[in-house]
């Protein structure tokens, strides 16, 4: 009771009412739209565009502007996908590639997170490693494939090495920029509240850096997937399990244009699916909790 003081007096009640009124006037009213409607609003425009694209493709095919050997029809491509599926190659290759991508991404995560923390928080490390780390981000990781083949031969190690070189800089740089975006005032408040050292990192620094870090993760996945495809396209050997990239290159060797198109489409679809099912919701949740709007996919 001592905490609340005397609340029976008239003027205090007036003040309480006044405050309640102000709060009500100034608070945002949340607009609730149903999830289904939101999902629909986000889905139909790209679907319409996709249909248009396929329509144009079909028209070009019908007009015979391009030699049909070079340009398969949409239905040829779908049939090719069906054949790959019926033979079981598509599932096997997809699973292999997704597994490699996920493992490579997780390994990148394990390396890049402490690296990003070091670069972000330790000044000498930042001066020395920072520029190289951001430089590496603009180096296409496919450039590492020849070197990796010389070092590790045509092995899984080569593939994982290339994935790591692609994803680690992205994730580490995301961590660094997340740390840079932490308002200094938050750290000061943390100190006033008595948070030092590990407690400050755990309760203030890391949660405050999370949006940048999650952005880095999302980009890191995109780089993992791209690097993986580059590696799979170049590094082919019977010893390596069949991946989507290898499947695509196999079609090229057989001059199977429909198969090549099918390959491109499966790579695209898998990349988008992982993005939509894992990273987009993750980022959206982190940002929405803070009242920030997520960037649209």
């Amino acid at each position: 009771m001592s905490l609340l003081g005397d609340r029976s007096s008239g003027p205090a009640d007036d003040l309480a009412q006044l405050e309640a009124g102000l709060d009500a006037l100034e608070s945002q009213r949340e607009q609730k739209t149903s999830r289904l409607r939101k999902a629909w609003a986000a889905t139909w425009p790209p679907l319409v565009f996709l249909a248009l694209l396929v329509g144009v493709w079909q028209l070009v095919y019908n007009a015979k502007v391009v030699d049909p050997v070079r340009l398969p029809s949409p239905s040829d491509t779908v049939n090719s996908l069906k054949d790959q599926f019926n033979a079981g190659d598509l599932q096997k290759a997809s699973w292999n590639s997704v597994r490699r991508g996920a493992l490579g991404f997780l390994a990148s995560l394990a390396i890049a997170t402490p690296l990003g923390l070091l670069v972000g928080r330790v000044k000498p490390v930042r001066r020395a490693v920072g520029p190289i780390l951001s430089g590496l981000q603009s180096l296409p990781s496919v450039a590492w494939v020849p070197a990796a083949i010389l070092w590790f031969g045509l092995s899984d190690t080569t593939i994982y090495f290339v994935v790591l070189m692609g994803a680690v800089p992205s994730i580490a740089n995301g961590m660094v920029s997340g740390l840079d975006q932490v308002p200094p005032l938050f750290l000061r408040v943390g100190r006033v509240l008595g948070a030092r050292g590990l407690a400050s990192a755990r309760h203030v620094l890391l949660p405050a850096a999370l949006p940048g870090y999650v952005g880095g993760l999302r980009q890191g996945w995109a780089f993992s997937w791209r690097s993986l495809m580059a590696a799979e396209l170049i590094a082919r050997s019977p010893d390596l399990g069949l991946g989507v990239g290898q499947l695509l290159d196999l079609s090229r060797q057989n001059l199977d244009t429909a198969g090549v198109f099918a390959g491109i489409i499966s790579i695209l679809v898998i990349g988008i699916a992982v993005e939509l099912c894992v990273f987009a919701p993750l980022e959206r949740q982190v940002l929405r909790r803070r009242g920030l709007v997520a960037a649209t996919v």
Binding site: P183, L185, F186, R188, V189, V192, L193, G194, A195, A199, H203, V204, P207, A208, L210, R289, R290, G291
Partner: peptide, 29 residues
């Protein structure tokens, strides 16, 4: 001992609810 301090900015932590912000101060104590 230690005084408490309020700034011009509320500087509440946006990843926490109002109550969790208050609870964090208690937790750190």
């Amino acid at each position: 001992g230690k005084p408490s301090l309020m700034f011009q900015e509320p500087a509440l932590f946006p990843w926490l609810t109002a109550r969790e912000n208050v609870e964090l101060a208690l937790r750190l104590k």
